[in-house]
């Protein structure tokens, strides 16, 4: 896959993105109505907006989980429209790390194997996966919890496992969808601190949130309303 490098190429470059859904009843919903934005390498941005604003749809498009109805999206300089599903999966695997509101950890799997999961799809050997997963867990301060299962950990710890999983493949960008939404203030604070530290290490972080306090931690706020960017500060 051709992959442009260097700081001159933005992590995300969206031009006139739209996304429409047809509901079961046949009603057409325009979730995004033409969004253009650039997010540079190493930026820390928050996509903010009320529920139904289209911010989650935007994040799914940025994360290459979904394809736009129209418009162009370049991720690290690569136009996603030119990629088939398998290459898109590979792009997600190598370039983007996901953090979800509800963690999405595999319940019966140890923290170590949860973190190692993205590497399975990259063909890394079992020993190599374990080694890198251990390092990632140590980086989020969970070096002592390697064999614990999600049910044996607090919400904050689970989200840190999820962040370790997002990090294990050395992505350029972390996409975090309401990462503190299911956490209490103290754990939320801890997770935000972790994301900030990672950003300082050079990884671009894009948060999606409706929490103004969380959004305020980012250096840039992109306000989305009714499928359009309302304000970008």
């Amino acid at each position: 896959m051709p992959e442009a490098t260097g700081t001159s190429v933005p992590a995300f470059e969206a031009i006139g993105l739209t996304r429409s859904y047809r509901l079961d009843g046949g009603v057409l919903v325009d979730a995004l109505r033409g969004v253009s934005l650039r997010i540079g390498q190493g930026e820390f941005a928050a996509i903010v907006g009320p529920s139904g604003s289209g911010k989650s749809t935007l994040m799914h498009l940025l994360g290459c989980l979904d394809r736009p109805t129209s418009g162009t999206l370049r991720v690290n300089g690569v136009d996603v429209a030119t990629l088939d599903d398998a290459r898109l999966a590979d792009l997600r695997n190598r370039t983007i790390g996901f953090v979800f509101q509800s963690f999405h950890l595999l319940a019966r799997t140890s923290a170590l194997d949860n973190v190692a999961l993205p590497l399975v799809y990259r063909g890394v050997s079992r020993a190599g996966r374990r080694e890198r997963a251990k390092a990632a867990l140590e980086a989020v301060g969970l070096g002592h919890r390697l064999t614990h299962r999600p049910s044996q950990m607090s919400g904050g710890e689970q989200q840190r496992v999820a962040i370790a999983r997002a990090l294990v493949g050395d992505p350029r960008v972390l996409l975090a969808d309401e990462p503190t939404g299911n956490l209490d203030t103290r754990n939320g604070e801890e997770v935000m601190g972790l994301l900030e530290r990672l950003n300082e290490g050079g990884v671009a972080v894009v948060l999606v949130t409706h929490d103004a306090d969380v959004a305020a931690r980012a250096r840039r706020q992109i306000h989305v309303r009714d499928g359009r960017i309302e304000r970008d500060t």
Binding site: D85, R92, H104
Partner: peptide, 16 residues
């Protein structure tokens, strides 16, 4: 379903 969605998000191809 959720597990499949997660695996796909993490880079699993349809073939996987």
């Amino acid at each position: 379903t959720k597990e499949i969605g997660l695996r796909k998000a993490l880079g699993a191809r349809g073939r996987d």
